[in-house]
């Protein structure tokens, strides 16, 4: 496979890889690095790619593994993850600012979930994957994915209600 063909191949899902990495690593820069790393690793597998059912599923699995490794070594090194990306949404008018605030809160709530639930929420709600595909990427069975998704959704609902009742901040 030529480099050009490979770039063509990854174009449909490179943003998904980036978004999954960002869901796990939070920081944009780290997610960009992770995407880069995963793509180079995928490129190194070049010859065997044609044997795969889904290169996208493979890329997502590699992203998951890479990011979890990153988080593990970060924890081992006793470094905290920089939550520096909450402020990067632009806010203009008052209403926009309020909406932006709310979206940031949703983001924070999701990122407070355990890693596995975060990945499931990301792949289901944002990428709109079927349960089968999520199960495949995470190496779980479909029922377990469904249960974890339901649990995560309920946690989010509860937190939303708390905010609704007591206000933001």
């Amino acid at each position: 496979m030529h480099q050009n063909e490979f770039v063509q191949l990854i174009t449909p899902f490179k943003d998904k890889v980036f978004r999954l990495a960002k869901r796990l690593l939070v920081s944009t820069e780290e997610a960009e690095d992770a995407t880069q790393e995963v793509m180079v690793k995928l490129w190194a597998k070049n010859e065997t790619l044609s044997e795969l059912n889904s290169v996208e599923a493979m890329a997502m699995t590699m992203t998951r593994n890479y990011c979890l490794d990153q988080l593990k070594s970060k924890r081992a090194g006793n470094m905290s993850i920089a939550h520096s990306n909450y402020q990067d949404r632009q806010a203009g008018l008052q209403q926009q600012m309020e909406d932006g605030d709310r979206l940031q809160w949703v983001e924070r709530m999701i990122n407070d979930l355990p890693e596995q639930q975060r990945m499931i929420i990301q792949m289901r709600e944002v990428e709109e994957y079927e349960f089968e595909e999520i199960a495949n990427v995470l190496g779980m069975n479909e029922t377990a994915v469904r249960v974890a998704l339901s649990r995560a959704r309920k946690v989010l609902r509860e937190k939303m209600m708390q905010i609704e009742q007591y206000g933001i901040g």
């Binding site: 990854i10 943003d15 793509m39 490129w43 949703v106 999701i110 989010l156």
Partner: peptide, 24 residues
């Protein structure tokens, strides 16, 4: 109360990788 939740998911779908991928 559910608006921001679904609004967030919709908005997230638009997030793009801004950096070009370099196959080094």
């Amino acid at each position: 109360q559910y608006r921001s939740l679904f609004g967030y998911f919709k908005a997230e779908q638009e997030e793009k990788l801004e950096q070009p991928i370099v196959l080094t």
